[in-house]
Amino acid sequence: MDLIIPTISQGLLWSLLAIGVFITFRVLDIADLTVEGSFPLGAATAAAGLLAGWHPLTAIAVAAIAGMLSGVVTGFLCTKLRIPALLAGILTMIALYSVNLHVMGKANLSLLQVDTVFNIYGAGNISQGNMILLVGFIFVLLTGIVCYWFFGTEIGAAIRATGCNQHMIRANGINTDVTIILGLVISNALVAVSGALVAQANGFADVGMGVGTIVIGLASVIIGEVLFGTRSFKNCLVSVILGSLVYRAVIAIVLQMGMPPNDLKLFTAILVAIALSMPLFQGKLKKRKVTG
């Protein structure tokens, strides 16, 4: 029982990453691996900032800007230099590994001795655990509302159309280089904020904390879509957030059941592989039903 609040809290903090992955993977139709670098970049930037005495919200804002810049780099590589999007993301991700080490000065920074966004408010009346839940909820709510609004605007619609049909949107006067870069910038900003929040909640930033984040993001997106639907953009956003919560719950349950934590990434990868191949199996099942 005492696992419920931490599970939901982690799910909320990681759902910002899931929304970021949703924006590239579903809206732009690009598998953007930059997240593996921009997530620890957000963590590193915020951690270094906090240790330098910044206000936690300032640290998160600067982390977001750092994430945006990494999105610009990937976007530049794949639009202006015509490097395939998957490879462009890998290049940025690898480059960010070195950048993150520079930002932190070493491979790991502890945040146990500094004020974070989770312990400067509430004046000690609320436990740190509940604070994470509350702050996470506020961040997710704001992000959800802003994303829903933005992707409903003219610019947002142009980004959505870019992911759907580049010929169509260019024939309607939109520069697809700009919309792709913009999508990557927004996505990686959210991923970096997610990294900044997770680092503060866990009490440390580590240069290796980005490993597997793309798969965690994909798992959340797909679980959410399968369980909660994709009828409209609003529905998709809610599904992705709930998907992140369900993913954390599944992880908590299998760990509780005795799965060694070292096998977590293997488990997640298998989960995502099964989920991604669902359409194929669903098609085969349908066929069998028709013929049999």
Binding site: T153, E154, I155, G156, A158
Partner: peptide, 10 residues
Amino acid sequence: RGRMPTLSWS
């Protein structure tokens, strides 16, 4: 078509 998109509702 032919004008820059803005941040008003689509």
